[in-house]
Simulated assay, not measured.
Amino acid sequence: MITIIDYGMGNLRSVQKGFAQVGCPAEIVRDPDRVETAAAVVLPGVGAFADAMENLQQAGMMEAIRRVIAAGKPFLGICLGQQLLFESSEEFGSTRGLGIFPGSVKRFPAGELKVPHMGWNQAEILQPSPLLEGIPDQAAFYFVHSYYVAPADPELTLARTEYGLKFASIVGRDRVFGIQFHPEKSSFLGLKILENFGKQVKI
């Protein structure tokens, strides 16, 4: 069973329904002990980075997340959930993240860009990954975000997207993945990514 972390931020039901559409049962969980015993874990998120980190701390989820990842279980961060995997964010000052991946979260530069980056945009695949099985290069997905991840290790970037600059839209190492767009809102290819993640549970 895939476990979706409920920490008070994110469109949890939409993600759960997305998994259900591809035949991958998923439960929404608020108990960190149940997160630790999950077969695979999803960290969604919509909102402010600092609020999210505070909510995770108060819910007792931070250590549960670290133990899940240390145990080698499949883990997927979606949108803000991807950003939380990194060391810090410059949103409203500087806030420490989970530190699973080296790097930081940065705001799109002010100027001619419309921020937030909202709508469909393409992902250029840079590295093969089980998460991207059956996903064509330059496939389009649905984005809504004002900040993006800047990995310190280029090998973390599985795919990138251009919006004024080129940023990492899919990251991953081992069985830990992060995606900036919303797969549950990205038609059949977004659902294919959820299905690919679900397959990791059986490996």
Rank of each mutant, 00 (worst) to 15 (best):
H145Y: 06
F86L: 08
G77D: 10
G81Q: 01
L156S: 00
S89I: 07
V149M: 07
Q82I: 07
N55P: 01
V42R: 14
G190Q: 06
V105F: 02
G60C: 03
F49R: 06
K114W: 03
I65W: 08
H182P: 06
Y7V: 04
F197T: 00
N121S: 10
M9P: 03
I100A: 09
G190P: 08
L80I: 09
I28W: 08
F167P: 03
L165G: 05
I203H: 12
E91L: 08
E27V: 13
A70T: 08
P116N: 02
E112D: 13
K73P: 10
P136Q: 01
F92A: 11
L126G: 08
G172P: 00
F86I: 03
A59T: 11
F75A: 12
P25C: 07
A50K: 15
L132T: 00
G47K: 12
F167L: 10
T95G: 01
S129P: 04
L84Y: 12
A26S: 13
E133I: 05
A50S: 15
G72E: 02
L84Q: 09
K166R: 14
A140W: 15
C79F: 05
R30V: 02
S169F: 04
F92S: 14
I125C: 06
V41M: 10
E27Q: 14
A38C: 07
A168W: 01
G119P: 02
V115F: 03
G190T: 01
R30I: 05
R173P: 00
V105N: 00
M53E: 11
G111R: 11
L189T: 00
I135L: 12
S104Q: 04
I135Y: 04
S146I: 12
P130D: 06
I193Y: 05
F92P: 01
S129L: 04
W120F: 04
D31Y: 12
G81R: 12
P74C: 13
R96V: 08
S94H: 08
S88T: 10
D31R: 04
L126D: 01
Q16K: 15
V149I: 14
I135S: 03
C24G: 00
V201Q: 09
V171H: 03
I179K: 02
E27W: 12
Q122G: 07
S146F: 10
I78Y: 13
S146N: 13
E155I: 02
P130C: 08
F188K: 14
R107Y: 05
E162F: 15
M62R: 14
V144Q: 03
A150Y: 14
G172W: 00
V115W: 03
F75Q: 11
R96I: 06
A38W: 00
L85S: 09
L194A: 06
G18N: 04
R173V: 13
A123W: 05
G8H: 04
M53I: 15
A38K: 01
V42Y: 11
H182Q: 03
I170K: 04
V15S: 07
V22Q: 09
R66G: 12
A168L: 07
S146P: 01
A39C: 10
F197Y: 05
